[in-house]
Write a protein that binds this DNA or RNA. Structure first.
Length: 220
DNA sequence: GACCAGGTCCTTG
DNA sequence: CAAGGACATGGT
């Protein structure tokens, strides 16, 4: 990539820095496919990907499909042992099985199906999801953003990390509001921006040190 | 063998 | 409220 590596003094507001991150990453990556798949798959994958590599999640989803367990309705009825066996490769498989059961129970009892859920407003869904044990802010927003195509921005460890590199020391809760204030209303922009951030972080940010946040510290 | 991965919850100080 | 630990397998 032919980007300046000179670091510049951080003089902009957090809001304009946020906008800059969105703009720079979009210019760098353009449109990239991210988390395709139906709503059921996103609901399940959102739990499985907690603190876990996506490749392992893909494998688990394939195993769930083989056992006809890759749907909220199926998980609702399934024997936990069967679920555990399929998702073992994602780690934390006992907790995650409990969380999937809790999520499936919530969806089936409160709505009847993910399809019916889609008729409800974002705020209502978010409030409900956060009541489910094992569904925190990031998982809830992932479900809303990628499963129901809502404009609810996902703040994960990567986003927090990159913002810190860019001189935005805000807390995660505050970051969500910052991005949502800067992004256009189009849910697709929310999806793409999150995708860009994750791709960027995985590609350039080392574990311990982060002298690699080149884009964030460049002049454009 | 050490260290980390697209978190969340519970316990402590 | 911040910090630390538990949950667990798989890749580097």
């Amino acid at each position: 990539m032919s980007l300046a590596t000179t670091r510049c003094a951080m003089s902009g507001s957090s809001s304009s820095e946020c906008a800059r991150i969105v703009r720079v990453l979009n210019g760098h990556y353009g449109h990239i496919p991210w988390w395709p798949g139906d709503t059921d798959e996103v609901l399940i994958g959102a739990v499985l990907t907690q603190q876990t590599r996506w490749e392992n999640v893909v494998h688990a989803l394939a195993l769930l499909k083989e056992g006809s367990l890759c749907s909220v309705a199926a998980l609702y009825e399934a024997d936990p042992v069967e679920i555990e066996r399929a998702i073992r490769c994602t780690g934390f498989y006992r907790v995650k099985t409990r969380r999937l059961k809790a999520l499936a129970t919530f969806v089936m009892r409160e709505y009847g199906s993910p399809g019916v859920m889609a008729e409800f407003p974002t705020a209502s869904l978010r409030e409900g999801l956060l009541q489910v044990p094992g569904i925190g802010e990031e998982t809830a927003d992932s479900i809303l953003c990628f499963g129901f195509h809502r404009a609810s921005f996902v703040i994960d460890a990567y986003t927090h990390h990159i913002c810190r590199c860019a001189g935005i020391p805000e807390q995660k809760s505050r970051l969500k509001a910052l991005f949502e204030d800067v992004l256009p209303a189009d849910p697709e922009a929310y999806r793409q921006t999150h995708a860009h951030i994750v791709e960027y972080a995985k590609e350039y940010c080392g574990k311990k040190r982060c002298e690699t946040c080149i884009l964030m510290n460049s002049n454009e």
